[in-house]
Amino acid sequence: MAAEPLIRVRNLRYRYEDGTLALDGLSFELYPGETVAVLGPNGSGKTTFVLHLNGLLRGEGEIIVCGLRIEKGNLEEIRRRVGLLFQDPDEQLFMPTVLEDVAFALLCRGMDPAEAERRARAALAQVGLEGAASRPPYHLSAGEKRRAALAAVLASQPEILVLDEPTTYLDPPARRELITLLGALPQAKLIVTHDADFAAAIADRAVFLHRGKIVAEGRVSELVHRYGWTPHTSGRRER
């Protein structure tokens, strides 16, 4: 691909406080418009990796996002451009109502409340949750929670979506909905997942992470075959 990458990661290393090396010289690029699946066993550093992409964790190495190097001065701008969807929607939906939650990032950035509300409602409409605006998050189903969290990320109009295990807790219909919804979004996407079917349905290419390094890159079906990554719906108990 000729275009400038949206994300460029060079030789990223990160050590936990207890001394374990979680990322060990990871390099990666994400180009405009593409969807990349990040596969790999538990503990291979997938979540640690995505937390670096908007500066929540800071390891050694170089990360450039949308032409901006990750450093203290431009974290705010990078966090606006990189929408991060966490694995557990209960941790992401922390505000009292769905609407407040979706507007949170906008208000933090100093947007006028009326405009923030308009934008938040538009984002909810985009994921088909107009009717849930005033509901508290704990009254949503797992699929609705996931979509509400996605709306909260989309409200900031990010250029890149980073999704950590988005199919966790979802039943098959909710999972299909999510595939359709994500497929319709124009942003470049980086999707961490255990779910080989899901990855195959949505990703253009995949990378395989092992012990903090990318050990292979290619089409999803190839990698799944090579690493015996047998398809199963979800690595976790359904709720």
């Binding site: 937390l51 908007n54 929540l56 705010e76 966090r79 606006r80 991060l84 966490f86 557990d88 941790e91 992401q92 922390f94 609407l99 407040e100 507007a103 949170f104 990032a105 208000l107 933090c108 950035r109 409340p113 009326a114 923030a116 509300e117 938040a120 909260a152 990320v153 900031s156």
Partner: peptide, 23 residues
Amino acid sequence: ARAEAIHRAMLARGYRGQVLWLR
């Protein structure tokens, strides 16, 4: 650990020490 994760989710969305409400 959950409180930590929530705090991270807040930071990821631009939290700067103040929780703001809609009007």
